[in-house]
Simulated scan of single mutants.
Amino acid sequence: MKLFNLSGRKTLEEASPVAFADWKDAPHGTAISLPQDVEVEDLRSHLNELTLIVLEFPIFRDGRAFTQARSLREYEGYKGEIRASGHLLPDQAIHLKRCGFDSVALPEEANTQDWDEQLSRYQFYYQNTAVSSA
């Protein structure tokens, strides 16, 4: 796996996220992997302790992680790193960034140039975003 930085912020490359199922009964560690069927509100009292939340895209057509990221940034005020993991395409780079993701976990064979090209594709946006620098 290699990381692609969407936000320009420093990423936590060495972090080892704990599965939410293991973490929820006895919260430990500062990095978790959150499946799409968990509400981000379940993390509210622990957000200050978490430095990395990995949001999963188990299949291409399931985009609930976009909503989770936006909720973490916009409604919960989460300031740590949000990383996308799973079935993703370079075409989604801009939307990931605008929803609040900082990085994407890519397979080793992924072409990061495709991701860079997508990030520089548009210069102006008409819609609001969950992050101010997108």
Rank of each mutant, 00 (worst) to 15 (best):
K24W: 02
A65G: 06
I53T: 06
S16F: 08
L52M: 12
A110C: 06
T11I: 15
R44M: 05
F57G: 07
A31F: 09
Q123L: 07
K79N: 08
Q36Y: 08
P17F: 09
G8V: 00
V38E: 10
D91E: 02
R44G: 04
A65H: 02
R64C: 03
T112W: 04
Q123C: 05
A93H: 02
L47S: 08
R70H: 11
A134F: 11
R61T: 14
L34A: 02
E39R: 14
I53N: 01
E49W: 09
T67F: 11
F4H: 02
F124M: 05
S16E: 13
L119V: 01
I32L: 03
D102E: 12
A84D: 12
D22W: 14
L106N: 02
N5P: 03
T67P: 12
S133R: 06
R61I: 09
V131I: 15
H46T: 10
S7W: 01
H28V: 15
P35Q: 05
F124P: 05
H28R: 15
L12K: 06
A65N: 04
K10S: 14
L72V: 15
Y125A: 06
P17M: 03
D114P: 10
W115F: 03
Y125C: 05
F57T: 11
H46W: 11
Q92N: 03
F20Y: 15
G29H: 11
R98M: 00
E117I: 02
E39S: 14
L6S: 05
R121S: 04
A130N: 13
E108I: 01
T112F: 07
V104I: 04
S71R: 15
R83K: 04
A93T: 01
S120F: 03
D22V: 12
L52W: 05
L34R: 05
H28S: 13
L88R: 06
K10T: 15
S7R: 08
P27F: 10
S85H: 11
N48V: 08
G80N: 12
A19P: 10
D91T: 00
P90I: 00
F20K: 00
A21Y: 08
A26M: 13
E108F: 00
